[in-house]
Amino acid sequence: MLKFIARRILILLFVFFVLTIILFWMHIRLTEFDAERLVRDYLYFTGSIVRGNFGISTGSKLPVIYELKMYLPSTLELIFFSFVLSFAVGTVTGIAAGLNHHSVFLKGVTAVLRLTTSFPVFWLGQMMITIFAVELKLVPTSGNISLFCEVPLVTGSIFIDSLLTMDPENIKSMLNHLVLPVIVLSFMPATQFYLLARRASFTISEMDFIRMAISRGQSQFFLARKHIFLNIIPSILPKIKIILCNLFSATILVEVVFEWPGTGIWISTAVEHSDNAVLETAIFVLAIIFLLTNTLIDIMGEVFFPEKRRINLNI
């Protein structure tokens, strides 16, 4: 197991190295190119990035790292909440659907779900805003908190910051603004989790040990909780990486639709105004976050579900 972890970390370092080369190449394309001092420039560039000195944003004239601390946690909290919600709803319904696989009703539900998730998430967000915010006036249309609420910037994440102020008005407004973007974001990953869990739990429910447990008279709920849920996870783990990736792409789009102040808007304006420092920083930080998450998921999969204890499903 230690060998596996060491190997993964080695791969991580290698990819990190490739990442710095790509970033440096981008930097050269956007600024000047000096052939003699190439290696020195590269080392200086990499060194400053690793130390956190990202430069000054040409749009707001602030150091990029301040803007990063403002915008990144907002995006991360959206991703976190929608991941948790979609995982919980998706896996539970998926396991139940897999156990009742021969029901015609569920086959129809699955077909309908596949259809509705083909619609792009930004269009769905607009529809939700029209229905729930404009017509029914249940939730606000945009932003992450009401303009009347004063929330000091502590961590950058509006959820934590408004909880820290302990003001019920702030918290209520924050939750109000959080509901619709999170729900819109969760549709796609929830469906993906549902399909994966359904397929995995159906395959597992035909296996010998489940048949033995049934012959001992266990109820389906007990089976699902104790036997099926944990056995599904080793097969789902590799797909979680892809789901997280798509979730992030969707988050950027949803931030634009809901005018949520996060990395989406930050990067879009940076591209429009050719703000190079912001662009490089954003790409670097996000790529690092994703690489670390992928490696972490791989390592966790190996630690908690070693080879002799997992069921290898062919999904």
């Binding site: 010998d208 040990f209 033995m212 008279g217 944990l230 056995n231 579900f305």
Partner: peptide, 20 residues
Amino acid sequence: LSERVAIMLQNGTRSLDPLM
């Protein structure tokens, strides 16, 4: 039948939950 019948399947290792 669960109280009165016990069953043994073909492959012993596969009849047990691998994670417990």
